[in-house]
Every structure is written in structure tokens, then in C-alpha cells.
Amino acid sequence: MESRSGKTNLKMRTFISRCLLAGLLLAPAGARAAQSKATRSASALTNVTNGIAVARTKDLDFANIVAGGAAGTVVVSPANVKTFTGPLTFGNGLTSNASFNVTHPGGTFGTIYGVVLPTSINITRGPSSMVVDNFNYDATLVDLFPILVRVDVGATLHVGAAQPVGTYNGTFNVTITEQ
């Protein structure tokens, strides 16, 4: 029986109560004399959470990029494939797509989820900034009972023509909703 809210729990408690009452009525006559009234109460059921949870396992990292003297972009795909466009030249270091584990004990076959990603964010270093946009994702079903889905996120970094040297940081939110 799926448990989606407290209503199901109430049903369970009700179900248990009826069984006990029936047992009392059927007790042998001799035994009845020793009994007056027995009351049982079911202990409160565990507060089982069946809601969605999302946890970050990897951050988005564009690694090292050589400022090319003209604007360009760096794309990191959800599968962590790095692509340069424009006159940017290659830099070393390992890129990373962002990755999230989505769990949903109350979810099942056919459940539809929405993924909310930003349209764009800024990553900054002091007064300098760069735009990260074109957030996109791939979802991979890792386990069905219970639901575990891995959501990998990639994006595009826009590097300016004379982008100052240094490490730029920013944050972005991911929201998973059950549709």
C-alpha cells in the first residue's frame, strides 16, 4: 500500500483497532471473566518521508582557460565533454559537469519530474565576471526500488576578450519537482 500522506497511516491504525475488538468478542467464556476491557494502542508509525530529495555530488568546473585576446566560449556538456569555440586556446586541468543524486521513495514507474535550472548566472573574481548559461542536463535512472536518478548538468561559459586572469566562482540552484 502506497503511503503518500498521513491519511494512509490513519487507515492502518483503524485497521489494527478493528482486529483487536473482534478478538475480544470471540474469547472463550471462562477467559472472559478474567477480562474486563483491554485497550491496545498501536505505537505511532515511523514518520516515513516519501518526498523528493536532491544532493549535489559534483560541482561544475570549466578548469583552466587561456585568455585568447578575443571573446569565446567554453562548453562543458552533461557528460563532461569540453568544447572551445572562438579564438580561445586550450588550457590544462580537468573539467567537470555538475551532478546530483535525486531520491524519491514515494516515486515509481511513470513518475514525471521537472528540473529547474537557471537561465544564466555570473561567476566572479572581484569586480570581474563571466556569464555561464545554456544550462542543460541528462537524467539517468540508477535504481527503481526506491527511485534514484542521477542528473548531470552542463553549461556554457562566456569568456571576454581581455578576461582578467584568476579563479572565478559562483553558485547555482537546481530544483527537482514532481509533476
Binding site: R4, S5, K7, T8, N50, G51, I52, A53, V54, A55, R56, K58, D59, L60, D61, F62, A63, N64, I65, V66, A67, G68, G69, V74, T89, G91, G93, A98, F100, V102, H104, G106, I121, I123, M130, V132, V153, A155, L157, V159, Q163, P164, V165, G166, T167, Y168, N169, G170, T171, F172, N173, V174, T175, I176, T177, E178, Q179
Partner: peptide, 22 residues
Amino acid sequence: LSAAQNSATTSANAKANIISPI
């Protein structure tokens, strides 16, 4: 039976390192 839509939000970092040309 479900109440309000289930949803969850978390955040992640985005990082890039601009290095000088060789």
C-alpha cells in the same frame, strides 16, 4: 491523496580559472 507538489532544491558551485597565455 498527495498534498502540495513534492520538490527539493540544492545548490552547486560553478568555477573557471583564467590563466595567462604561455
